[in-house]
């Protein structure tokens, strides 16, 4: 009983943290405390105050406004990257499981291994070295890496389902691989995909921050948490708070998403066990 309550706390804490940042990002479309790009050199490097809640940067821009718009970038990149990963990975995983043991399965699996051999950062570097740095290329790099992740999770979940008798019953009802995958397999691996989705979402935010930090992600003037950290690096001795706030934003968002993912898994797992 106590165990269940504690998990529920994690789930709610995660939902609140992640929800806060999504709200911040959405709010930034209609309102920010200051225009996020407005410079005011006279007000540069101010510590947090009533006027500028989180202080100002080296050009006198409002840090709070930048953080809010930066949340937008992070979330957009991570969501699209998860979308790419799911959009391509889930069908591939279903296909591989439906044809388990065949050459199609083998090609899909080895293809996944191959992508895994390129750490996502190296994919990003390859892409940007040819196409130049941009948020779109960052999305592509993270998204490509997500494809085999989702393919594997889907295939793994689907494989254990394919051994169950209800799949045999569906085949006796004249249904073929594709239809069985959609009707019987997909709904029953959806739990796994939701959990993996939140994990990849948080990893995407971390990856975007890393790429932007080294200049391979969103380009100026689009604010992003990674680049705010990069800009703050030369000012570490002078204004350490500039390094603090974007980092905290990343940590809290990722923490929230991870807690949410864990909470969802715990919430869904026992029910799965009772039903299966």
């Amino acid at each position: 009983m106590r165990r269940g309550t504690r998990r529920r706390v994690g789930l709610w804490l995660g939902a609140v943290l992640a929800g806060t940042f999504v709200t911040m990002a959405l709010l930034s479309f209609v309102w920010t405390p200051w225009p996020y790009a407005a410079m005011d050199i006279a007000q540069k490097l101010r510590p947090p105050s009533a006027a500028h809640w989180l202080g100002t940067d080296q050009f006198g821009r409002d840090v709070a406004a930048q953080l809010m718009v930066g949340a937008r970038t992070s979330i957009a990149v991570a969501i699209v990257a998860v979308g790419i990963g799911m959009g391509a990975g889930v069908p591939l995983g279903l296909w591989a499981a439906a044809t388990r043991g065949s050459w199609i399965d083998e090609v899909i699996q080895r293809g996944g291994d191959l992508v895994f051999a390129f750490p996502s950062l190296v994919i990003a570097i390859l892409i940007t070295s040819v196409f130049g740095p941009s948020a779109v290329n960052a999305i592509l790099a993270i998204g490509i890496f997500n494809i085999p992740v989702f393919a594997r999770v889907t295939r793994g979940g689907a494989l254990s389902l394919w051994t169950l008798d209800y799949i045999r019953a569906a085949r006796l009802a004249g249904k073929r691989g594709a239809r069985i995958s959609v009707e019987h397999i997909l709904p029953n691996v959806a739990n796994l995909l939701i959990v993996q989705g939140t994990i990849q979402f948080s990893l995407g935010i971390l990856a975007e921050a890393g790429l932007s930090y080294v200049g391979l992600g969103a380009q100026p003037p689009t604010p992003s948490w990674g680049r705010m950290l990069a800009d703050s690096q030369t000012l570490m001795g002078l204004a350490p708070q500039l390094a603090l706030f974007p980092g905290l934003a990343i940590v809290l968002t990722v923490l929230g998403l991870n807690l949410l993912g864990d909470g969802l898994r715990d919430l869904m797992d026992p029910r799965l066990r009772r039903q299966a």
């Binding site: 051994t163 008798d165 209800y166 019953a169 006796l172 004249g174 029953n188 799965l272 039903q275 299966a276």
Partner: peptide, 18 residues
Amino acid sequence: RAGLQAVFQDPYGSFNPR
């Protein structure tokens, strides 16, 4: 196929839980 059907062993794995 409609003339030939089956019942399997596992009462738990024989049905889509959803």
